[in-house]
Design a protein around this nucleic acid. Structure first.
Lengths: 145, 145
DNA sequence: AATGAACGGAAAATTATTACTAATTAGAAA
DNA sequence: TTTCTAATTAGTAATAATTTTCCGTTCATT
């Protein structure tokens, strides 16, 4: 969730050119809460950037992930999703509507500490995914599942 | 981690035939701690069961997952890994040697409870993966990462 | 203005997984 | 035991779908 100036700076610092496409991709990702995959992002950008290429989205996300501007989510689908918030927060996915949401302000430190102590690993990252039925889907179809 | 008799029983209870292949696949998975994917399992079985087919491994794991004999892991790789321990325990993967290990006896209940309360989701499952460098790899190459 | 990077669009690659088919087999019934 | 039959298997081909590559054109930066 950086400002455009910061994105510009980080791109330049890493030797990448600053292009309207790259900024647009970042803006679109930062503006949505849907944790889109490449194709969703492409569709979001389509109206405003009709010539935007899916290949560009892929290449841009690859660069962004490399320089720490986005994190890649793997929720068990065929494609990867992206998050402009690069902090290691848990995610939760609705098994009915497939929506992926953030879980902020949750204290996972004790678990991380315990994992580190139990395994002797030098931890570098984590991915915590919860699965269940979101409140909206509970109302719509309370019985299923 | 069931005995063969139990696997046999569960297969029959669910209307599946008990075949040497299915028992061999279960045995191989239960005997290893490497959390193999389908191809690794196939390679493990190859020496003792030269005619074992990769397709059979896939179909068997599909059935096993369906009747609760195995759980499917998605550690961010291209393929799925399998675990004969169907309890929802965290896993940890070494970013150097790609080994995947279990983390038992760790209390993730507080985190689950907090996630449930924060989101209002009806939770049905979770996947907790840690990433880092295992003790062995720390000794071999202490600097990298 | 120069130039190497980046772009669009489409084609290609990748590769895990599934489908297919003839042959075999498990389990039930005779 | 033998027979019967639908389920299962081995081996291979096909699928599916995301992601990457390709390349001529355009553009950002110096």
């Amino acid at each position: 969730m950086l400002e455009i100036e910061n994105v510009t700076q980080i791109l330049r610092d890493n030797g990448f050119k600053v292009t309207p496409q790259r900024l647009a991709v970042y803006e679109a990702l930062a503006a949505t809460e849907m944790h889109p995959n490449a194709e969703m992002l492409y569709n979001i950008l389509q109206p405003q950037y009709p010539t935007m290429s899916l290949a560009t989205v892929y290449k841009t996300m690859d660069i962004f992930a490399g320089i720490g501007l986005v994190q890649i989510l793997n929720t068990g689908e065929d494609s990867f999703r992206y998050d402009a918030n690069t902090s290691s927060h848990p995610h939760i996915k609705c098994i009915c509507c497939n929506k992926v949401a953030d879980i902020f302000d949750i204290d996972d430190e004790p678990l991380i500490k315990a994992a580190q102590e139990k395994t002797g690993f030098q931890l570098t990252g984590r991915q915590i995914y919860f699965y269940g039925k979101c409140p909206r889907c509970q109302k719509i179809s309370p019985d299923t599942h």
